[in-house]
């Protein structure tokens, strides 16, 4: 397989705010193979969107952001690129799908204009060829009657159709990596399912890697190869999707799963809510950032920040993990 498509090492993003520097992303490392799907899950304020945008290079020239660490996409150091180099990268290398499809589209431009623009930005083709590609793209993302839709404006489309157009734009130059930031949060459940199915299918057809960001574990479950759970700007647990959902080890991951109402249980069951609020990242607590809300907290948790320790491919940043391994790392060669 060769080297991974994306390698993020010790990435931090510090934002200047009126109250002082806010560490939105704190020492995150991850890697992604070609064609792999990574889910990033966390509450609002956990730093998942800032992480995604930093990987995209969207914060490179923003004076409010102080970035450190490295982001290597296909061997290139994203954080060191000039704006023109970044623009050349957005499209053929990495594409992004945002949460709100209405604000991602220009309301006074037709659907076709968006797509033709995206195609001709990176490819030396005639307008006619670009329109042909646009029609193919609309067909690929499952929009019926592309010839009619291509002349419509965004407001004439339903939310699900708009998100399909946004996906078509992101895929216009066949990126190696697609970053989808809450792609279905603004959509109905039935439409959400269609969009997730669509992303699944396109990933298979185009062989691209995907980073799917969501606050909803349900969206990420069953759609990803690996999942990283973020809390307070850090990755607190990462594992292949199945073992994370079946046997989460970090108390936060475990509590997040338990907080979701189940279709299987009887009505009026008390939900396992996580009390308290996420930490203030201007003044993060000194020990484990989840300590204040953790059921299994010990004294040393409040003092000693836990490191992300890997056992095979399953990494956990907790001194006292739930679902600990039956034996130690020596016995896990069969894993992965």
């Amino acid at each position: 397989m060769g080297r991974p498509l994306l390698v993020v090492e010790n990435l931090s993003a510090v934002i200047t705010t009126g109250r002082g520097p806010l560490t939105a992303v704190d020492g995150v490392s991850l890697s992604l193979d070609r064609g792999e799907v990574l889910g990033i899950v966390g509450e609002s304020g956990s730093g998942k969107s800032v992480l995604a945008r930093t990987i995209m290079g969207l914060h490179c020239s923003d004076p409010r952001f102080a970035l450190s660490g490295t982001v290597k996409l296909d061997g290139r150091d994203v954080l060191g690129l000039e704006p023109s180099q970044l623009r050349a990268m957005w499209g053929p290398e990495v594409g992004m799908v945002f949460q709100d499809p209405m604000t991602a589209l220009n309301p006074v431009k037709r659907v076709g204009t968006h797509l033709v623009e995206a195609v001709r930005k990176h490819q030396q083709v005639t307008r006619r060829d670009a329109v042909g590609q646009a029609l193919d793209l609309l067909d690929m993302v499952g929009i019926p009657d592309p010839r009619r839709r291509i002349n419509q404006f965004p407001h004439q489309l339903s939310g699900g159709m708009r998100q399909r157009v946004v996906i078509a734009m992101a895929l216009a130059n066949r990126p190696k990596l697609l970053i989808a930031d809450e792609p279905t949060t603004a959509l109905d459940v039935t439409v959400q399912r269609q969009i997730l199915d669509l992303l699944d299918r396109l990933r298979g057809e185009l062989g691209m890697a995907v980073i799917m960001i969501s606050h909803d574990l349900g969206v990420v479950a069953g759609r990803t190869d690996r999942v990283a759970v973020m809390y307070g700007g850090e990755i607190v647990e990462t594992a292949d999707a199945r073992s994370l959902f079946d046997a989460p080890r970090h108390p936060y991951a475990s509590a997040l799963l338990a907080a979701i109402p189940s279709l299987k249980g009887a009505p009026h069951q008390r939900l396992a809510a996580i009390d308290g609020t996420p930490p203030d990242l201007v003044m993060p607590p000194s020990g484990c950032r989840f300590a204040a809300r953790c059921d299994a907290v010990h004294d040393d948790c409040r003092v000693q920040p836990p490191q992300l320790i890997f056992d095979g491919t399953h990494g956990t940043a907790c001194h006292y993990p739930v679902n600990p391994l039956i034996s130690t790392a020596s016995n896990t060669s069969g894993d992965t």
Partner: peptide, 21 residues
């Protein structure tokens, strides 16, 4: 349709909808 649209929590990639009762 609504029930089938609920994302499945405990099945990764194995038959979607298997747990929808």
């Amino acid at each position: 349709l609504l029930l089938a649209s609920v994302p499945e929590m405990h099945s990764s990639s194995s038959g979607a909808g298997s747990g929808v009762g």
